[in-house]
């Protein structure tokens, strides 16, 4: 098998995730797209891991899984807070910071 098979699959999933982050308005859907992006990175790390015969890729994939869990926890807490204050989680209505 070619290492590119895995890397290109990772690239496709990454781009689908980027499209989701750009196109979605619902904050929970944006968080789901971010999970897609993190997963594609993990596939890349493990493919390089097998290619180079080490184990460092597995270690960092595990760290990424841990960071992703923390990110989802804090992200969803923020989404809940926004929902409680504004009764909506549409990201285009959050314009207080004039972004």
């Amino acid at each position: 098998m070619l290492v590119n098979q895995f890397l290109i699959l990772g690239a496709v999933l990454f781009c689908i995730g980027v499209y989701g982050v750009l196109a979605r308005k619902n904050a929970v859907m944006v968080l789901m797209s971010i999970e897609l992006i993190l997963n594609s990175v993990n596939i890349n790390l493990l493919a390089f891991d097998l290619m180079n015969g080490g184990l460092e890729g597995s270690v960092f994939a595990l760290y990424i899984i841990g960071i992703a869990a923390a990110e989802v926890g804090v992200g969803l807490a923020m989404v809940l807070l926004i929902y409680r204050n504004k009764k909506s989680i549409a990201l285009d209505e959050l314009s207080e910071m004039k972004g």
Partner: peptide, 29 residues
């Protein structure tokens, strides 16, 4: 890719925990 431990962790953390968090997020909002 011969990384069983990462695969098991993926199932436990993502499919087990993160997806439950997401479904709670969907429900609570």
């Amino acid at each position: 890719l011969a990384a069983e431990f990462v695969a098991v962790t993926q199932v436990l953390v993502y499919i087990g925990a993160v997806m439950v968090l997401f479904l709670f997020g969907v429900m609570l909002t």
